[in-house]
Design a protein around this nucleic acid. Sequence first.
DNA 1: GCCGTTTTCGGCCCGACTGTTTTCAGTCG
Length: 644
Amino acid sequence: MVKVGGWGLPASKRSEPPFFTKNQIITVFEQIAILLELKGANMFRVRAYQNASRALSQMEKGLFQVIKSKELTEIKGIGKGLSSLISEIVLNGDWGKLGDLYDEVPVGLVEMVGIPGLGPKRARILHEKLDVSSIDELRSACQKGLVANLQGFGSKSQDKYLEGIELYRRNQGRSRLDVGLRYGMALKSRISEIKGVEEVELAGSARRRKETIGDLDLVVSALPHNHASVIDSILNLPGIADVKGSGDSKISLILEQSVLDSDGVHGKLDKALDESIVNRSEDATIDAQIRVVPPETFPFTLAYFTGSKEHNIRMRQQAIALGLRLNEFGLIPENLIGESIGADAAKYTLVCENEAQIYQKLGLQWITPELREDNGEIEAALDNSVPNLVSQKMIKGALHNHTTASDGRNSLEEMAAEAIGLGWEYLGIAEHSPALNIGGRSIGVDPVAVDQQANLIHDLNQKFQNQGNNFRIFHGAECDILPDGKLDYDRETRAKFHHVIGSVHAINTWKSRDEQVNTDAVINAIEDPSFTILGHPTGRVLQVREGFPIDMTQVIERMGEINREGSLKAIEINASPYRLDLDWRLCRSARDHGVPIVINPDAHSTEGLSDISYGVDIARKGWLRAGDVLNTLPANDIDRILAQ
DNA sequence: GCCGTTTTCGGCCCGACTGTTTTCAGTCG
């Protein structure tokens, strides 16, 4: 779904190049593609803007630098035309004719294509024939029966649009990974109990563990003579708000919250997650696509609907190069396929019992779903160099967690017990520092309470040792990086901690400032000898706010420099599912610059410790191996490193 | 609009489902 907030060309805040950033151009190109579609432009031209936008977002180098060194056209997807346009935008602040497009297409049309079943072509016809330019006007036209009378439309279309407008209101767009997974696992569990179902797997962006999930994809394996009854059973599951479509092999559903109402399926409830689901409006929905296929087709369909789209395109191109055709039904030699298409052609497919065999037959190493974004994984798989990625069982502890001493909900003892239960060797406590105010009240720990907590931790560690338990607690602080780049607490207090996690919290101050001012302030904080880990580095909160302006490249480069001089400056993947920063690109950048990464749950409760799994998923998306992640090290090593 | 190259222009991933029309275009993923 398209968000129309922030629609339009941005204005530059700068008086010299670069006038616009890579991200601004990425956003505008996505919007241009939509506008061109609504204008009825050539679809391949539309795709060119989409491709260019994606190419820019996958580019690791700085855009300004690439333009200056005239390397722009070397990027696949950016040719002569778009490269000169991009240069003009960045160097002269001139968007060329793109502004006209925004003027020509009413923004209401952009919203209209968010209605299920209504795309750009028909939105355009409605605009031209009925002068409909917004969702409200469309509703009114439908209610008057005007739409049904149009050539090519009918009463079913009209009814579908009215229903779609209501569903559009209920659809809250993308869901956070944790929320989406919860719906997905609930649906998977219900489907797995249906008689005749051999196997069911979550696919799509949930399986790829994207930070947010648009809709759910599930693939179901059943013997052909059971398909009809399985589909019928799925359609009759509780928790379905609407059936958007259903055929012999494919069902499109809209799920409502009540799909989660089942007993004991999901194990222990995470309180924070429950609250975030409650925060969705009561009639919020999430879409689900389900495919039912015979067992021999299952691996192909699973791979196909796990995507991503970009990964699939590369896979099919790889198949074509080998004289094969890859689709959701099989991997079929071009010379056997003849006139047959789709499911019919599947009888000629090479047999693959699982996804790995599909990749193998394409001359590729198996690629774990988290990497399937066409970010270089195909090249690595061809080369047999897909790395052995970090996994949750490699994690031996975490360093950023809170207790009731600041704003956590559980005591130190309870948090430690939970960590031991997870099989960890250590738990790092890092309470807030006094500068952090929420609602006018400091929730940080004053220096006296720091000493008290130190004593408590010392006693607990002594107790673990006496019990012959190697588990230990590290006493750290989540110390505010103040707007001037100094760290909260005085030097003497900071010296008492095993580790100091520096975090930016006064977000409004930082958001309104210049990028370089923020960057310099964070670098200044990092250079303090007591500083060990940069906490939630980008400051973003998923679906709530973007991070503050900062050039993380400079920050990471500086951290790498300091590390080469023998210090430890690490950077955190904040695993809390409402943050999940760094993204994969920053993970790679940190790794490449010799900056260790710590996956921290930032737990505020015992349940929150399990959030580390989301951080591990992000680390995997960033191609991190065990050696890149600090908290895969055993407790003794962490102790030694922090003591340096 | 990009790409590749047979360097001047054709092809650009592919299939299910729906509704309207009666053979196909639009939408979606």
